[in-house]
Design a binder for these strands. Structure first.
Lengths: 186, 186
DNA sequence: AACTATTTTTGATTTCAATCAAAAATCAAC
DNA sequence: GTTGATTTTTGATTGAAATCAAAAATAGTT
C-alpha cells in the first residue's frame, strides 16, 4: 500500500497536509536481492515497504544472519543512525521485487511538529517498533526453532515463497540443513 | 537516583510541574528476590529503578530465563499491557535490595499532555527502549555467549555481585555449568 | 526442450554444549 | 566459629545440531 494511503487508514489528514507529506517522500522500485540499505551504513531515513518483502540482516565474515523480515506496510528504521548518530549495523535487502518509500527523518520530524496527527502516528509507530522488538526477544529467548518456524508461518506466510531457505534458517537460529530436516518431518 | 532528580538531569521542570509529577509517583522499597512484577500479569505502570538491581525474566515450567537486567535509573515498561492491553509475559524480580518508583501510565500520559518537556522525556525514553531492544537482538543473534559475557561485564559490572550465576547464564543463553567453565579459563 | 546454475534435500561424521551427578566452596543463621 | 543450606565448580556421559560432502530438485536462460 502507498504510504499516504496507509497513513490515512491510521490518522485523519487534510488535503494540504497530505500535500506537505507527499513532498518529502521519495519512492523507489526494487528487484529481488537488491540492497536497499547496505550493512554498516549511516542512513537517517525511514523505509516504508509499500509493496514486496525484505529482510533486515547483518553480515560479517562468512556469517549472514537475518534479524527479521519486513513485509508490506512495515517500516525499517535505522535506529542507531537516526537517534544516536552512529553507524547502523543492519542492512535491508529485498527478497522479492517491490516498492519502498523513503523519508528523510529530519524532514519528517519538522512535519510532525506542524501536524499533530502525524505526531500521534509517529508515537504509535515507535510503540509498535518496541512491541515487535520485545516480542522478538521473547521469541529468541524462550521459544524453540520449531516454534519460531511455526510463528513465522502464521505471521509471514508469503516469506516462504520469496526467501531462500538459508535466510529463514538464520532467522530461526539454525542451519539450512536442520531447517530442511525439520520441515521434512510430517 | 530519585526519579525526580533523574528527570531534572534530562529536562527542565518548574516547581509546580515537579509537584504535579510527584503526586503520581509511588515509591516502594524491595528486598533481594522480591517479585516487583509477577510473570504473566497485567500492569499499566512504569517501573523506574531508583536504587538496586533487577532482572526482567520469563518463567514457565522449569524454565526461568532472564531477558535483561535493570539497574539504577533504568525503566521497566510492560509494553504489552500498557500499549496493547494484553497480559505482559515478563516479570521483574529484584536481585538486590533497592527502591522502585512506580507510576500509573495513564496518569503519566495526562501529565505529558500538560507538560511539553515531559513529552520530550517520554519520547526519548521510548527511543532508548527501542535502542536497547534492537541492540539486544543483535547481541543475541550475532554474538557468542562469551562476547555477551564480556559485554555484560562492561555494561553491568555490579550485576555479578548480586545475581546468582544461573540468572546470568540464562541471560547469556547457556547453562550455569557452561558459564562456570567459560570463566574458569584464564 | 536442453543446459546451467542455484537451491534444497539427504547422508555420514564430528563437535560442543546440555545433562546428570557429585564435590567443593560460599553464604547465612545461630 | 560451627552447622546447615545454597551456590558454584568439576567430572563423565549423552545428544542434538553443526559441519562436511554429495545427490536431487528447482529455477532461469538461451
Amino acid at each position: 500500500m502507498n504510504i499516504i494511503e496507509f497513513l490515512k487508514t491510521k490518522i485523519e489528514l487534510s488535503e494540504t497536509e497530505i500535500e506537505q507529506i507527499s513532498k518529502i517522500i521519495s519512492r523507489k522500485k526494487f528487484d529481488r536481492k537488491e540492497l536497499i540499505l547496505p550493512v554498516e551504513n549511516s542512513s537517517k531515513k525511514i523505509f516504508f515497504i509499500e509493496d514486496g518483502f525484505c529482510r533486515v540482516f547483518y553480515a560479517k565474515k562468512e556469517k549472514d544472519i537475518t534479524l527479521y523480515f519486513l513485509q508490506e506496510n512495515q517500516i525499517g528504521l535505522p535506529v542507531d543512525s537516526i537517534f544516536y548518530d552512529q553507524i547502523c549495523k543492519f542492512g535491508i535487502e529485498a527478497i522479492s521485487k517491490g516498492t519502498v518509500a523513503t523519508i528523510n527523518y529530519e524532514k519528517w520530524q519538522t512535519l510532525t511538529e506542524q501536524i499533530p496527527n502525524l505526531q500521534k502516528f509517529t508515537n504509535s509507530m515507535m510503540i509498535s517498533y518496541v512491541k515487535n522488538a520485545t516480542d522478538r526477544i521473547y521469541n529468541l529467548k524462550f521459544q524453540t526453532p520449531k516454534e519460531r518456524y511455526e510463528m513465522l508461518q502464521t505471521a509471514f506466510p508469503s516469506i516462504f515463497l520469496h526467501s531462500p531457505l538459508g535466510h529463514i534458517a538464520s532467522y530461526l537460529g539454525i542451519t539450512q540443513e536442520t531447517l530442511s530436516r525439520l520441515r521434512a518431518k510430517r
